[in-house]
Structure formats: C-alpha cells, structure tokens
Design a binder for these strands. Structure first.
Length: 893
DNA sequence: GCGTTCACGC
DNA sequence: GACGTACGTGAACGCA
C-alpha cells in the first residue's frame, strides 16, 4: 500500500447525512446550521491525515430522478425528505470543498454511489489504492483486492474498514455476492422489496449454499423449507429487479482525468474566511500558520513601571480616590506557594496600570508595609482574574484581603459551567472581540512550559496591564448577565468569598505523617512482591501485569478464560470482568488484589509522598472552583477528594493524614444524606420528607417501599439494593448502570426504578417536570440559581438525549448540595476568622469538611461546624451533620 | 506527547 | 432493536 498512490472517493451526500444526525444541531450566531458540515470536515481531516491521498474527490446525489426510479417507480418512495436544517448545509459544504480545491462530481440520473463506483473502477485500472468512504453499507459491494471501503461505525470518528478479505471474514460472502444478498433481502430505506420472508440471516445462508441468485433458481428444489421455496418462486421477478436496483453502476458516463482528481492545496485565505463565517474555531487552528496572513490585531495597553517606593504613595492615593482597583501578581514558578513574586500589576479603576517590579526583592518588603492596609480595607473593592492565585500571594505576604468584588473567571463559570477554557484571552475574545496572547503562546505548554522569568520586565508589565484593562472591561458585561440570571447572591455571597476559603485551605494544607506513609508503602511493596510471584507462577511465565494488553493475552489466549467484554483495542480486563472470572482460575483473584495494592502504592503512597513539602511535611492540594459542571469543587496535585475509604487496606492511608502536632486534633463534619434531603426538598415528596423528619435509615425505608415489605422484614440484600437505587437517583445513573452495579438484569433494574418512582410520587413528578423545563428553557438550576445548560435534551440521538435527561434530573440535586456546603464553608471560615481562632478549615470532600482544630478550641469549633453546616441553607427537611474527631483522618469515621 | 485502560472517591 | 450510558483525577502503558 505504501508504494502505491492513494485515491479517496467520498460519498458526500451520505457522509453529510451521517454527520448531521451524529452531532447536536449547531448553528452560528447568524443562525446558519453547521453541525453536518463540521462533522463531515472532522471526518475528512481524519481520513486524509491517515491515508495521505494523492487523489481525492467527493461525489454527490442529484435531485433529478435516476434510472432506478424509471425502472421501479416505488424506488425510494418511502424516503422522508431531509429536514431543512440538513438540506441547507449541502451548499455550504460544497462551498467549503471548493475552497479546498477538492473535486466534486455529480451527474444527472445517477446517485453518488454510482459515481463513486465508477471512479473506483477507474482508479483500479490506474493501479491506485482506492478508498471509498460512506455512511452506507451498500458500498461493501465495491470492496475488492484494490479497493477498500470505509463505513462510519458510530458517531463521526470511528470508521470500519472493509477490504475483500474483511468482508468474507465478517459476512462469509464476497463483495459481488453482497449485491445478490440485497436482491434477496431488499432494503427498507430505499424501498427495495427483495423477497418477502428473507432477511440477512436467510439471505446469507442461501448465498453460502448456492453462491448466487441465478444458482438458487437453477437449483430451487434443493432449497430447504417449503415456505421459503414458495416465496422465492413467487417473487422471482422481484428478486432480480431488486438486485438490479441494489447494484451500484460502475459505468457512469464520466470523463475522468487523473490530473483533475489530484488533491491539491486549498485556497487557504478563502478557506479561513469560510471557517470564520461558520465559526469553526478548531478548524482554523488546523490551517498551517505560514499559509495565512496572521492578521490578529492584538489589544495593547500602557503601563507605568515602578522600581522604587517613591511612587507608592501616588498609587495608594489614586486607589483611595477611586475606591476600586484590580491587581495581579506575576509569579516566577507554576507552584505559587513555593514561587518568588516577580512583580505585581495594579490598576486603580479609571487610572493607568502600574507594574511594580520586585526583582531583587528589597522593594517587596516595602510594598507589603505600604499596601497591606489598602488590601485589608473593607470599603475598597478589588477585582481580578482567577483571584484565588493572587490571594495566595497576599497570604504569603501576611496580607488578608477583604473586599473582592469581581473575578472574571468565576463570573464566567457561573454563566456557563460547561466551558473548559476560562482564560482571560478567551473571555476578551468572546465578550469584547479583543485579542491578547494566550499564556500558552508566551510560555509554551506541557513539559516545556516556561515561567514568566523568560519575559523581560517590560513584557511582563505590558501583558499584565492588558489583563487588568480587560478585567475592568469584562466586569460590567459579566456582572450584568449574572444579575439578569438571578445569580447575584450566589456570585457575591458564595463564590467570590469561597475563593479566599479555598486559597486558605491550599495555603495551610494537610499535615502528613511521612513515617506512616513509608511503613505502609513497604507493607504494600511486600504484598506486591508476593502477588507478582504467585501470578507469574500461575501464568507459567513472567509478564507485565500492569499492561492490560499483556494481561489479556495471558488470561484469554494462554489460559483460555472466556472473554466477557472487549474494548476498542482488545480484551477488557477491568474489575467487572475479573470478578466474573473469579471461580474460573485462581490467578484472577491474585490479579484483582494486585491491581488494588498497586493502585494504593503508586497513586496514594508514592503520589502523595512526592507532593509533601519537605520543610513542613504538609500537602498543599489545589482546589479548583471552575471545573465541574454541577458546581462542585475539584482537587488536584494531589486529589484529596478520592483518598481511599472503602477497603480497610486503603483506608489505612488516612492514618497518615494528621494534625500538625499534639496540640491539635482533626474535627470532621459530614452531611448525612445531603443529596436525598435536597431531593426531598425540591420534590416536596411527603414520604421522603417523613423519612428525614423521623430520622429513619433511608436505605431501609426505601427498601421497604420498593420491595413492599415492613421495615422489620427488610433483608440486608434488599437494603443494599435500595441503597444502589438511591445512589442511582443521586448520581443520575441509568437502568443499565444500576443493572451493572447490582449484577441484575436491566429489566429488573428498571423495575426497581419504576417501583421507586411509584412510591415516591412527587419525586416522579419532579423528574418529569425538570426534564420538561430543561427542554423548554435550555437549562436547569440549583437552589441558588446556579445554571447548567443542557443542549443534549434536544438531541435526536437517543443516547445523548437520555444522558441530558439524567443530567437534568441530577444537576439540581448535586448542584444544590454543592451550594449548601459552599455556603457552609464560607460561614465556617468567616466565623473562625472572626473569633480569631487558631483552628483552620483545611479540606472539603463534597459533603464533608475537616478542621484542623486547636485542642483548647475543640468544643467551640465542634459547635460552629455543626451549627453552621446544618443551618447553611434552610430546606423543608432538616439537614443533619455527624461530627467526628480524631488524631488522624482514619479515626474520624 | 497523547490516547487508552484502569481505579479511586462522592 | 441498537445505541452505550454520573463526574473528576491520576498512574501506567504503548503508540507516535
């Protein structure tokens, strides 16, 4: 294949159809529908990248009737007209292809597949590698020794490859016989009748036995089954007609010329123009930079460089006058806590930006003294972008910030929590149509990411001055939207103050007893050693157990265990599969154990150890406020929100999480069933509310309702199944997910869910209403009006739509729970600060808060934590918090 | 470097 | 009747 040149022929009509139905209906701000074109181009790029063709063309159907219509007037008679949203995209696609200089072929009286077939034969004659691309399986008849057929599998990214051999492998018939097969079974979508009673199975059987339709009729007596025989005889004519209709014509009168099929260089400028009009940002990125004029106009800004304290008073006076300023630190390292501060940009509102350069550091001390008061005054409003990072800088300088009034990053997150890029460059482009360099462009990314040290002092000043200008330009717009959507309180009273709380949690960190970690680590190592030996012995050879590929070969090829599930790349070996193979071979149990211990060792022992600050023995995780779709916070480096708890061995890791010294103790407040309480509140379901008023065991209660037995008769199996149902309600899993979790049939799982909803009628009503309103409004909301947009609800794709529905039901529950704990965090933090306590809030794990508590303050802190958490947001059911104490996180259970 | 597979918590 | 099914983080593998 490599030595031959490649010709790719794409069925444009078919592929645009596929792409249109695979993607949600996207449109530009001018209302041009683009999803099909976008999907088509994604596939086109993928295919050309992979096969690097020398020749390429796209075939289209024409509206005019074809010879098939003339022969059979019912041909495609039942075909529904394509929706307008799709038809409108054909001319757009053709325009894009034209800009790409790609040959388009259409001809009256023939369909795209006939054109494709004809071009394919032409390519074969010229001894080219021919690749046909379509969303239609009819193309399989064109596969040959020289031609491959790519058929879309699912979505838009996966293509199934068929050559002649692959066809025989999969269907047991040749491409030519495929035409006979269609003649026999017909094709519903084209209204080709075929022979009644014959489907794919019978058709394949007949062809494997007889080879062709002619041969079937020549040996009709040998056909087994009277009914089948009669049907064949009666519909003989129809069978031959159907075959003629199904056969792709490879002799369309085309004047083909290899030179014209050449895949040439696009008209880049024109293409870029089209992509811009269609808002295909990711595709614009694909255009080689040297091919187009880079005419991005960068926003520019002025700044005043300050390198001595003489001017400090002038800046302070300006701030005092305008009562508002924006600022941002420039750090010399990714890790802010360890980083030196290179400088700070400060912009008193309506004034120029100052860039104070601290290089050399003498000035920093002076800055601290002069500006402390300004930051700590409550009547001066402070704005910024990703201000948590700047609060950390202030903490390092011993400054406590007071009045944050705007953070463009957090603001945009509230406007749309589903974005992934909240950078200032993105926001300015979206809202202001102004461009500044992305941080990535200045510093690079990944392993080679540099620090701001590579920029000159002047460049640093310029860049950060731009940022502060943009922050102020964004402020009114973003605040306006937030207020318009009823999120003012959420923004000002919860999210903005929370940034400081998170900064404080990062700043203080969690003390780690490194010795305990080390000891646990060597225990795990010993166990891994033993397990490794046993596994090698049982396998009869040494291999890399960590490699799913090698493990799969051992289990399923060598040991011949039954294959339960496959992944894209081979055998699946996940816990679910291994669980089912447990009694088939003793090696399986060892592998499960091995996986568990290796996970603990690598992620939680080695991973944590690497992140312990060697001076203080503390771990400083990053808490991110703008990641999740639901409003939860996330934690990275390390993720402290997934420290093991379920198995005893894993839970031991928590013994290493300790208070700073013997004067301190950990106090842990844990919301009991917060999501189900939120559900009781939102749905106002009397039964569910009653359970919480009476402080009942909710899973037992659910079991008694779902299985219709008195509570005393609920067995432990019933309870655990009910627990899974409650879990499903809270996390929005499907009947499929529930059936998998409980290892029961999907039907049974569905019964459980239906039964649940039958008992909790108002929950059912809520679920129906929220989906309805989500569809109508385009979004759902939490108790504090936090929004999540759900375009998935309008998808024509069942899977996507169902996903949207579950998210619609789940987000108000999970998101409101997030609202509740965030409010509690802000208040607990404020209270500890107000009372000047030594105790600090150091961790949040979704429904749990941990305070590193000074022992003398123990009772006070306990009360603050419990009361604040329970009274955070008033629901129409009580919130319940369990308080626990211990000398390690392990003990607070 | 990047996608895939697996596993941990809520 | 199939579709392929909570989220977020991280480690290791294996391909490029």
């Amino acid at each position: 294949m490599l030595d031959k040149e490649t010709l790719i022929i794409i069925d444009g009509s078919s592929l645009l159809h596929r792409a249109f139905y695979a993607l949600p209906l996207l449109s530009t701000k001018d209302g041009i529908y683009t999803n099909g074109v976008y999907g088509f181009l994604t596939m086109l790029y993928k295919i050309t990248d992979e096969y690097n063709p020398k020749y390429l063309c796209v075939a289209f159907d024409m509206k005019a009737p074809t010879f098939r219509h003339l022969e059979f007037d019912l041909y495609k008679a039942n075909r529904q007209k394509a929706p307008n949203e799709l038809s409108l995209q054909f001319p757009i696609l053709k325009e894009v292809l034209k800009a790409m200089n790609i040959n388009q072929i259409e001809i009256e009286g023939y369909e795209a597949d006939d054109i494709a077939g004809t071009v394919a034969r032409f390519g074969e004659e010229k001894n080219l590698n021919v690749i046909l691309v379509s969303g239609d399986r009819d193309y399989l008849q064109l596969a040959s020794d020289k031609s491959k057929v790519l058929v879309t599998k699912k979505g838009i990214t996966e293509l199934e490859v068929f050559d002649k051999e692959a066809m025989i492998d999969k269907y047991g018939i040749t491409p030519e016989q495929f035409i006979d097969l269609k003649g026999l079974m017909g094709d519903k979508s084209d209204n080709i009748p075929g022979v009644p009673g014959i489907g794919e199975k019978t058709g394949l059987k007949l062809l494997k036995q007889f080879g062709s339709i002619e041969n079937i009729y020549e040996n009709i007596e040998e056909v087994s089954g009277n009914k089948l025989k009669e049907s064949l005889i009666e519909y003989k004519q129809q069978a031959f007609l159907s075959r003629r209709l199904a056969e792709i014509v490879t002799s369309v009168p085309l004047e083909l010329n290899l030179e014209e099929l050449k895949y040439e260089e696009p008209d880049w400028e024109r293409l870029k123009g089209l992509y811009e009009k269609l808002e295909f940002k990711s595709l614009i990125e694909k255009i080689p930079k040297d091919k187009i004029e880079i005419n991005i106009e960068y926003y520019s800004s002025e700044f005043i460089l300050i390198e001595s304290e003489d001017k400090f008073q002038k800046i302070i006076d300006e701030i005092l006058k305008s009562k508002e300023f924006a600022f941002k630190f420039v750090y010399g390292d990714e890790n802010i806590l360890k980083s030196e501060i290179l400088g700070i940009a400060i912009k008193p509102k309506e004034h120029s930006t100052y860039y104070i350069n601290f290089d050399g550091n003498e000035l920093l001390l002076n800055f601290q003294n002069s500006f402390k008061d300004i930051f700590e005054r409550e009547d001066i409003l402070v704005s910024g972008h990703n201000i948590k990072n700047d609060i950390l800088g202030l903490f390092k300088l011993g400054i406590k910030i007071s009045s944050i009034t705007f953070d463009s990053m957090i603001g945009e997150y509230l406007i749309n929590p589903s974005e992934t890029d909240y950078s200032i460059s993105k926001l300015s482009n979206e809202y202001l149509n102004l461009n500044i360099e992305k941080e990535e462009e200045l510093l690079g990314k990944g392993k080679n990411k540099k620090t701001y040290k590579v920029l000159s002092v002047d460049e640093r000043g310029q860049y950060f001055a731009k940022i502060l200008d943009l922050v102020y330009m964004l402020e009114d717009k973003i605040i306006g939207i937030i207020e318009g959507q009823g999120m003012k309180e959420l923004y000002s009273d919860v999210e903005l103050p929370l940034a400081e709380v998170l900064a404080s949690m990062e700043y203080y960190g969690f003390k780690i007893d490194v010795e305990i970690l080390k000891e646990l680590g060597s225990e795990f190592d010993k166990e891994i050693d033993n397990l490794t030996k046993e596994i090698y012995e049982l396998a009869g050879e040494e291999f890399n157990i960590n490699s799913p590929k090698q493990l799969g070969e051992i289990l399923f090829d060598k040991l011949d265990l039954p294959v339960i599930k496959k992944t894209k790349t081979g055998y699946s070996t996940d816990a679910e599969v291994l669980d089912k193979l447990k009694d088939k071979h003793p090696i399986v149990e060892n592998i499960l154990k091995y996986r568990q211990i290796v996970k603990l060792k690598s992620t939680y022992i080695d991973g944590l150890m690497n992140l312990v600050d060697e001076n203080t023995d503390r771990i400083h995780s990053s808490f991110n406020q703008t990641v999740t779709n639901t409003g939860r916070i996330s934690s990275t480096e390390p993720n402290l929100q997934n420290i093991p708890v379920k198995t005893e061995e894993g839970r031991k890791i928590r013994k290493a999480f300790v208070p700073q010294d013997e004067d301190y103790i950990l106090i842990d407040g844990d919301y009991s069933q917060i999501e189900l309480r939120v559900l009781a509140h939102i749905s106002d379901d009397p039964k569910l509310k009653e359970a919480f008023y009476n402080n009942e065991d909710i899973h037992t209660k659910t079991a008694s309702e779902v299985f219709n037995v008195p509570k005393e008769e609920v067995t432990s199996i019933m309870r655990s199944r009910a627990k899974a149902v409650n879990f499903g309600i809270v996390y929005g899993i499907s009947d499929y997910g529930l059936s998998r979790d409980l290892n029961i049939s999907r039907k049974e799982a569905k019964e459980y869910i239906d039964n649940y909803l039958k008992n909790y009628k108002k929950v059912k009503e809520y679920m129906e209403e929220i989906v309805e309103s989500g569809k109508k409004e385009g979004y759902v909301e939490t108790i504090l009006n936090r929004r999540r947009y759900l375009p998935e609800l309008k998808s024509r794709n069942y899977v996507v739509r169902s996903f949207g529905e579950r998210v619609a039901m789940n987000t108000p529950i999970q998101g409101s729970a997030a609202d509740i704990i965030k409010v509690a965090m802000v208040r607990v933090y404020k209270e500890l600060k107000l009372r000047n306590l030594k105790s600090k809030l150091i961790l949040q794990v979704h429904d749990e808060l941990i305070i590193e508590t000074y022992k003398d303050e123990k009772d006070e802190v306990k009360e603050i934590l419990k009361n604040t958490m329970e009274s955070s947001i008033k629901l129409n059911v009580p919130l319940k918090v369990d308080i626990m104490m211990g000398d390690s996180w392990y003990e607070t259970k």
